[in-house]
Nucleic acid binder design. Sequence first.
DNA 1: TTGTAAGCGTTATCAA
DNA 2: TTGATAACGCTTACAA
Lengths: 331, 331
Amino acid sequence: MVTITEIAQALGITPSTVSRALSGSPRVKASTKEAVLRKAAELGYERNVMASNLRKGRSDIVGIVVPRINREFFSSVISGAESVLNEAGLSVLICQTHERYEDEVRALRTLKNNRVSGVIMSHSIGSKDGTHILEILGDEMPLVQFDRVFSYLRGAKIVNDNFEGAYKATCHLVEEGYRHIGTLAGYLNSAAYALRLKGFRRALADAGLEPAAEYMDSIVPETGRAAALDALRSGCDALYSAGDFSALGAIRALQEAGSRIPEDFGIVGTANESFTALMSPSLSSLALNPRELGRQSAQAFLDGAADGEIIVPMELVIRQSSNHKQAICQK
Amino acid sequence: MVTITEIAQALGITPSTVSRALSGSPRVKASTKEAVLRKAAELGYERNVMASNLRKGRSDIVGIVVPRINREFFSSVISGAESVLNEAGLSVLICQTHERYEDEVRALRTLKNNRVSGVIMSHSIGSKDGTHILEILGDEMPLVQFDRVFSYLRGAKIVNDNFEGAYKATCHLVEEGYRHIGTLAGYLNSAAYALRLKGFRRALADAGLEPAAEYMDSIVPETGRAAALDALRSGCDALYSAGDFSALGAIRALQEAGSRIPEDFGIVGTANESFTALMSPSLSSLALNPRELGRQSAQAFLDGAADGEIIVPMELVIRQSSNHKQAICQK
DNA sequence: TTGTAAGCGTTATCAA
DNA sequence: TTGATAACGCTTACAA
């Protein structure tokens, strides 16, 4: 491996000058810098990152901590963050917590020990509060939280605009002509789900309507099925679901009960999971925009991870399951 | 930050002894080791990984290079590898190539510069050959390739048993009673797809049947639709598809044409994408087992990344789309 | 079993 | 604008 010392010897100068030339310091003559760069290229020099890191006291690596990387949402966030960070010359070290507190602690320790430049994370279900995070990272390490955030921790927080998103989705159902609209809500101890329910209610209130039904803790196909059948009996003609999986179950149940979608019954889900576009009928869904969440998280880190919340808008993707007017017209 | 020197001073011994004690060397008295460990815990010592890496000339990080991490297949491979590597005290640095040769070169350089312990990779579509890989990594760095492999490179290669898998899938269709079986094949310049076609043909030959139809380059829903309609006209009653997306398109087209699945027509896909379980009818599929691919890749690295190929079996997941006998019986 | 001493390759400080 | 020197914290021959 070629070192700066070898370059220095080859040129009859000292390592300090070579170091300055290579790191773009202004305190080096243009001709010298050029000679150094040429020689470095000629010898195939590549900076020893470990030595550089040791001397500088930090690495050019950013740690990302997520519950699981093989979940589309998280892997897309990582993908978005990675693009921005690579652009800035930073690498990404990824840790999974498998939703466990212990693994989260271990991951944060690893990152701290590697002297990463900062941490971007979404905490595990197993972490009931966030005190351990600052205990491990200390007061200096830049911290960015996304999606699942402890609002009382220092640093930047990047979250979806769940209230506004659910509001838009519900308004869309109203505009399509549905009038007896219910919701499949998630776990209300999660801030994201609680906000979606609020957005749903506000949209109906603003339209002068009452919620036709509200089903809590409905996030898997099975609960969606049961809720949808009940909703049908109660006279509902549309549902805003805080998740796509429960919406999927609802659609199946409604189809089996002889309801036509979207002619008789409209549905909008949330998350824009990849299967929503593949279903028949395809499912309208409120997209979480995870890549953008990742990009914003990375940008917030690059900007210094200052305290504060950044809100990423959600995008409503309209597909067949809520396309009432057009379906009616085509008849 | 606490250093080994401070621990040494506190105990009236030298840093070397502390270092030995902390790294579990046998050349240190049990009582001394115990005192060191106690003191280290007391002071909250944590090893400075950068200094350790510099001295040892390598880091405890393994690089993983994939085309995209927000693809279920790759993120699952990474997840599997990460589990095994973390267990062994190694961290994972992830790089995306976005299927581009240039990004792959950049990623490999980054890893090399970080002096990672080894590289686990699946090359990008943009890399027509693998000479750049060894050019960058040199002769020393352990190399493990998975799924997309250049067989002429040194190191370990971990691949699915595509021949055997397609053979099993096709046999399953035969056993279910289908007799006019065709295939939706992928791009034959990809080794994986070519092997699946061979497995399909062999299975039929062994059953004394002829391929009823073979459609090449069919990997998206649209091509699947077209092929399925043609297959129906040609008298096919089943298809083995080398991908799930084309199988999805095929099912939709057949349903619209009035074919009942699996009663009139059987289908098995490949990859076991998550939507296969959510469809109606659900799609039988040949699972690629990406987590296992990741685990085996990590294990191969830990074992020294010796030259050779490790073959991971594929698992046939039988769902409704090929469940002919049972569907018939229930009538 | 422990201590001594050197050095990994870079960068920061200070002096020239 | 460049050079000399030290230091980042750790590991490892080698010596005791």
